[in-house]
Amino acid sequence: MSIQHFRVALIPFFAAFCLPVFAHPETLVKVKDAEDQLGARVGYIELDLNSGKILESFRPEERFPMMSTFKVLLCGAVLSRVDAGQEQLGRRIHYSQNDLVEYSPVTEKHLTDGMTVRELCSAAITMSDNTAANLLLTTIGGPKELTAFLHNMGDHVTRLDRWEPELNEAIPNDERDTTMPAAMATTLRKLLTGELLTLASRQQLIDWMEADKVAGPLLRSALPAGWFIADKSGAGERGSRGIIAALGPDGKPSRIVVIYTTGSQATMDERNRQIAEIGASLIKHW
């Protein structure tokens, strides 16, 4: 067993022997301040990774656009098919120029040779490549099948209805392509620590998230040296922004954090800054 596999296998073990965790309302004060600064709703939840206990939450059962955070769930569904012998990570998928959609920095470079399922998941999570996500959605049967996968996990809230990039439209009061912070946090925890996926697939999923290259201005910008984070960000229309993450000190994750916002007129930089400040408060009061 590799060191990384050992780390993920012992996530519940280490967490069980940690000192009790206590909620700190100071972080919620910052979440509410972010709402004021952005002029928009902000949803927040913080779960203990081992027990699933909610440590703090704000608007945990209000719907927010998922945006690209759905790509972690998508690759979880792909990995479940791999575990069941219905898919192979090494299978190569070929596609054409007509398949390319807006923001496809990886797939646009491989029109000639195609990409493997493993490479597509890596591109979808680490670079948020939209064509990679659409190609992977095709392998599982489309958005409705991802929703069905989530329902089978016990998540009857999260739903995907459309493809990239239309799913980022974020129309107010439109339930399409949305989740709730509580539902997303619980589902992410199941994917990373539950028995739904094999140990190898859980490790692969967290490795992809740990290698995320496009979430630097968010929670990662607030992390002290030595902290662990595996995350996936999302951005959408109407001032929408979000991030889902597993993080913790001492090089291992111990909490799940989900943050979503929508309806702001603020710039992307300002949305990023507010999420980073929430992260800084979380870490300060850990």
Rank of each mutant, 00 (worst) to 15 (best):
K190H: 13
A225M: 15
Y44I: 08
G76F: 04
R255T: 05
T262M: 09
P143L: 04
I243D: 02
I54F: 12
T186I: 15
A16R: 04
L135H: 04
G226W: 06
T112I: 14
T131H: 04
C75R: 00
I3K: 14
A215P: 05
A132G: 05
T158R: 00
F70L: 05
V82C: 11
S57D: 09
D177R: 01
I243L: 11
V257W: 02
A84T: 14
L199G: 15
S68H: 00
R162A: 07
M184Q: 04
S104F: 02
A246S: 09
T187I: 08
H156P: 11
F149W: 14
R220C: 03
T261R: 03
A132C: 03
A133R: 00
N152G: 14
D155F: 01
W286R: 02
V42S: 03
L150M: 11
R59I: 02
P224T: 06
Y260Q: 02
V78M: 09
W163N: 11
V117M: 10
A280E: 15
L150T: 09
G154C: 06
F13T: 12
M268D: 06
V8N: 14
G248E: 01
A246D: 03
V257P: 00
L135K: 05
N168E: 04
G248Q: 01
L120N: 02
H110A: 08
M67N: 13
G39R: 14
R241K: 06
A280T: 11
K71T: 00
N50T: 14
L160H: 06
V42F: 14
S2N: 14
P217G: 09
T116W: 02
A183P: 07
A15H: 08
Q86N: 11
Q274D: 04
A211I: 06
G142K: 04
G52S: 07
A124Q: 02
N168W: 03
E270S: 12
E26G: 12
E210Q: 12
I206T: 13
I229K: 02
A124P: 00
I140K: 03
I125G: 01
K213M: 14
I244H: 01
R92N: 09
N173D: 15
I275C: 05
L49M: 15
D48G: 06
R92E: 08
A266T: 12
L28K: 09
D99M: 12
N130E: 01
C121G: 05
A124T: 11
D33V: 14
T262R: 08
L10Y: 09
K144I: 13
L100C: 06
T186F: 15
V8P: 10
L137N: 04
L73G: 07
R41W: 07
Q204A: 12
R63Q: 09
D48C: 07
C121D: 00
A276N: 09
Q88G: 10
G248W: 02
G234A: 09
R220A: 04
N173R: 14
V78R: 00
R91Q: 07
S51Q: 10
L136H: 01
R162L: 05
L247K: 00
I275S: 01
A84V: 13
L160Y: 02
T126A: 10
P65T: 04
R63K: 10
S221G: 10
D48Q: 08
L111C: 10
L55S: 06
I171Q: 15
W286Q: 03
K284C: 10
L136S: 02
H94M: 14
T131N: 04
I243H: 02
E166I: 13
P224Q: 06
R7I: 09
L191H: 05
G90M: 13
I256K: 00
L197I: 08
P224R: 06
P25K: 10
N134W: 02
L282E: 04
W163P: 10
S80Q: 12
D174G: 05
A148I: 13
L74A: 06
V29W: 15
V82A: 10
D129M: 00
I206C: 13
S96A: 12
I11R: 05
M268Y: 08
R7Y: 09
E108D: 11
G239E: 01
R255Q: 03
I206S: 12
N152F: 11
S240E: 09
V72K: 00
E87T: 08
A40T: 08
P60G: 15
Y260K: 00
V82K: 06
W286S: 01
Q88H: 15
P25S: 11
D36E: 14
I140R: 02
L247H: 01
T27V: 14
S221E: 10
L100K: 05
A84M: 10
T158Q: 01
V42W: 09
L196N: 15
R91L: 05
Q265E: 14
G239V: 01
H5S: 05
T147V: 11
L79K: 00
L247V: 11
N173H: 12
G90R: 10
V21M: 05
L205Q: 02
P20T: 07
L247G: 01
L38Q: 06
A16T: 11
F58I: 08
D33K: 14
A123R: 01
M184C: 06
M115S: 04
L196W: 14
E195T: 12
E166G: 12
F58E: 05
R189W: 13
R238Q: 12
E164N: 00
Y95V: 08
P20W: 02
L100V: 09
V214H: 06
G279N: 03
E277M: 10
P25Q: 13
R59D: 02
R59V: 01
Y44M: 09
V31Y: 01
E108R: 11
L38R: 06
A84P: 03
P217R: 09
G52C: 04
D231R: 03
H285G: 09
Q274A: 13
D33L: 13
E119L: 03
K32I: 11
K232N: 01
P224G: 07
F17W: 10
H94P: 09
R271P: 05
L146I: 08
H24A: 15
L150G: 05
D113I: 07
F13N: 03
D174T: 05
N272R: 03
F70T: 06
T158Y: 01
G251A: 12
K232T: 01
A185N: 01
D212M: 03
F149L: 08
M66G: 06
N134H: 04
Y95H: 05
T178P: 00
I244Y: 02
I256Y: 03
